[in-house]
């Protein structure tokens, strides 16, 4: 199939660690193929050369944490045909959303010598709270094969093969022995969105929930089981409060254990 003009790709950064956009550079051999199929038009982390918008695909990394970024995301939306958010920051607020459970002004006073120069929002929020998002790719960081799959699906006009079910399905297909049942190790896998390929259980660790809540999660039932395995309330709060702390299902669950 020959395409007359190559679709233009842009990569945008908001509050984040850059790990997700690095996944694109991490594609290595596939990156050449991607560069052959798309024009990488705006990607400051990879190149200073900028091709003007509008862009066919925008990959947006990071969460909204400042008044400036809350404005900038609207500009990004205006120049983007398809806007895809990548990673836990962009889809759930990221680890920096831990501020959402506390008073951010207190942090600023404690951390900065001259707090008057800091202009920040009280909450770190996902991109979809600000603009319409066409597709969300989960993970901290995202899985590079899922990123390639989304780009591939876009180029070929098909639905991406990205499943919203639990990590458990990935474990079982890979033949990984369940760490919770066989070892009594607390694991977030049963409430966590698949996509990483069950990395932690494959090393006999419980899932940390990097991909956030799966479809129809039931963390209350999981927490009940964890308590039977000996976990304390404060540890339950911490377990749900990591990269996806501000996703609705994990936020509610952590708050329910904070109150009790």
């Amino acid at each position: 199939m020959t395409r007359v003009t190559k679709p233009k790709l842009a990569v945008w950064k908001f509050a984040s660690c850059d790990g997700c956009q690095l996944s694109l550079l991490d594609c290595e051999e596939e990156l050449l193929e991607v560069a052959g199929a798309l024009e990488i038009a705006y990607f400051p982390e990879a190149s200073r050369a900028v091709v003007r918008g509008p862009y066919d695909i925008s990959l947006v990394e990071g969460s909204i944490t400042t008044p400036h970024d809350a404005e900038r995301i609207h500009q990004v939306r205006r120049v983007s045909r398809f806007l895809i958010t990548i990673g836990a920051c962009a889809t759930a607020g990221g680890i920096q959303a831990l501020r959402n459970f506390k008073d951010v002004q207190e942090f600023i006073r404690a951390v900065y010598a001259s707090p008057q120069y800091i202009e920040t929002l009280s909450k770190s929020t996902p991109i979809r709270d600000h603009v319409f998002v066409d597709y969300e790719l989960r993970g901290c960081p995202i899985n590079k094969y899922q990123l390639l799959e989304v780009i591939n699906a876009y180029l070929n006009g098909r639905k991406p093969n990205i499943a919203p079910h639990s990590v458990c399905s990935e474990c079982k297909r890979r033949g990984i022995v369940c760490v919770m049942v066989a070892n009594g190790t607390p694991c977030l896998g049963p409430v966590t969105h698949a996509g990483c390929g069950a990395i932690c259980p494959s090393y006999r660790r419980g899932c940390y929930g990097c991909f956030g809540p799966k479809e129809t999660p039931n963390p209350a039932a999981l927490s009940k089981r964890w308590k039977q395995l000996g976990m304390k309330e404060e540890d339950l709060v911490r377990a749900y409060r990591s990269f996806n702390a501000y996703s609705e299902a994990f936020r509610r669950e952590s708050e329910s254990h904070e109150r009790s």
């Binding site: 079910h165 639990s166 458990c168 399905s169 079982k172 369940c178 896998g189 049963p190 409430v191 129809t216 999660p217 039931n218 209350a220 039932a221 999981l222």
Partner: peptide
Amino acid sequence: AKRCLTCSN
């Protein structure tokens, strides 16, 4: 459903 994780195990 209150107990089930719908995890597919």
